[in-house]
Amino acid sequence: MRRKSSLLTASPILFSPIYLNTENVSTGKLLALYRFANLFFPKMGSNLVNTLLDMEKHSERLTANSSPEDRRKLIREMKGLSMKMQCSINDEEENMMDISVNIVPSEVLERVQQGRNDLIEYQKLSKDFDELISQLITKEIMRRFTAKVTNYFKGFWKSQQVPSFITQLLDMGWIDRNGQLLKGASIDELLTGKYHKQFEQLMPEELLQEGMQIRETIKTCFEISQEDADSLIWDAKKRHALLEITIREANKP
């Protein structure tokens, strides 16, 4: 299934759509891709993204060296020009990601000249990127945990007497005869939900603990990444209170 992020609805002046096929992406592949890109196109990826983000956030600074007259001249000269950069990544012919950047230079400069430095748009885009990445990381961690669980399940198939819970999972279509956890299986239901007790009896304590930590870490980090302005203020108040105690106590003779 192709996931379309909200970047699709962003103003196309500076950014164009990013399509991400989350079903076909893992952080392992992204990391390999990143390493490859670093070897053969050093700094290109980071510079490209940083330039795009900087354009939104620090456009005034970037153009500060040119005089207002130069900028007006540049705007006139660039009228009608547009830049398109297309990047497609495929995994065995299956499309993983499309990044299509569309920049209209005169629009960018006009916005700077009018002082419309769109911080809100920047924050929105930045947040969207974070959410995309967090989804990939969640998926990858769940994949790794699934692999561990599968290893244990495989072991049960080799034993003389297969535990009834394993047979039940097979009947439910959650695992196959190789012990492989299938798509319909819910790790949440196993760890904390309906099948928690049976799962706990079969799995070693260490694995359960790891699963819980992964689950809680993801959950809490998601909450953080989805923070709104109110929670920023609330967090700031708590940190402020802690620092107040710290500064007062630390300065006591």
């Binding site: 983000l53 990381i137 980090c221």
Partner: peptide, 16 residues
């Protein structure tokens, strides 16, 4: 000690 999830900022991907 616990999993590191440095995804808060886009910069972290490129500085990773």
């Amino acid at each position: 000690v616990i999993y590191r999830l440095p995804f808060r900022s886009i910069g972290t991907i490129y500085n990773a």
